[in-house]
Design a protein around this nucleic acid. Sequence first.
DNA 1: ATCGGCTCGCGCAA
DNA 2: TGCGCGAAGCCGAT
Length: 458
Amino acid sequence: MDERITRLNERPVAPGQAVVYWMQRSQRSSSNLALNEAVERANELRQPVVCYFGLDDSYPQTTARDYRFVLEGLQDVAQGLRERNVRLVVRREQTVQGIARLAGELKASLIVTDESHLRLGRRRRKQAALLLEDFDIPLWSVDNDVVVPVRVIGREQYAARTIRPRLHRLRDQYLHPIPNPSAVAAPPQVESAVDLKNLDGTLAVLQVDRRLERSALYVGGERAAQQTLERFVTELLVRYHTHRNDASVDVTSNLSPYFHFGHMDPWTAALTVGRADVPREAKESFLEELLVRRELASNFTFYNEQYDTLAGLPEWARATLQEHASDEREQVYTLTELAEARTGDDLWNASQQELLLTGSMHGWVRMYWGKRILEWTRTPATALSHTLHLNNLYALDGRDPVSFANILWCYGKHDRPWPRRPIFGTVRSMTRSGANRKFDVARYIGRIDALKEVNSQA
DNA sequence: ATCGGCTCGCGCAA
DNA sequence: TGCGCGAAGCCGAT
């Protein structure tokens, strides 16, 4: 357990009146190791637990759709925390200032938060640790959203094949059901400024980008996440290993938005799939995605500060893209043309429509989507910046480590060289003819058109 | 439908 | 120092 906890300032547990769980990434009331740490320490101290969430509408590259998903999630959190005797406080403010103020109000003994594997999140936690140090309040973070803590792996991994044996060796040690202990002391009365029961009213006052209001597919929250997992396991998992790259008959889990906001945790997903009555290959294929690929992504963003630039790539990839940077492009599209799904490739347009409508994209198609943008922009640096912009703004799992790793993979990260081609150099290419060979493209496009139809009538 | 060649560098055996 | 092998490919040959 200790390698999961980082003491972000040097203060010992203070003689205060409550323990605060500062909820950030892990927006769930169960299977939450940071919340559990807060509850256990509070119970030792015979103090109550308060869970704080700062709803900050100045978060970059977000839309109303993201906030709706978050608020739906907080409705489930409120109910789940009541059952664990923990008070939820949600206030509309910048979360670093908010946690410092609440810590003073409550005379907190200790604040526990969940780990971030990204620059912005880690910077925020550092700032808070410094503010709280002045009040003599300790801040701890718990590596709460990966099965094997990133610090146990210890350094950046070159590829899936290097992290895979390490994760498999450590799996039995870390993959167990997470308990949900309750706080013993009665929670204090604290003002919670955001009304979660009136979701539309709360959304209406936020100063957010309203171009996207809701997803045609996803409802946020732990309950929806659990239902999505159960449907995946009972209906889709049996064909996962044979059809996961066939976008025309989507058998993927659709869990990535829930993982991004912490509505689902990797222990519940892995253990539920492990118990399923399906062929071994199906389970292994999913666990490869969930454990190896997902945790490789967190390893990447945690240990490589350059996770969103070409500088994050291995040397061979950077060199070969540079070498081919001035290759002739048959088509060049602007960011607006891409965002509005107005290219000459109907498969690509459908994938962008899927992103706009639902907030996510089929796994294989997502790679194709990223690789094609490289062909349609003047330089790899422009391609990457366009791709990151579209993904951050429109995907519900934008700004997730998995998103950054997936996008950099399109430029050679965690991959190997392949035969030389225009623009790509020795980075692996993906073509429309390849997609046609691989699955029924017209059927995928039809599926997205139908979604568009239903959505425009609603 | 399946296979080989294309290409590079890590990790482990030696 | 050598060798096996790797996220989702492509193309052409069988």
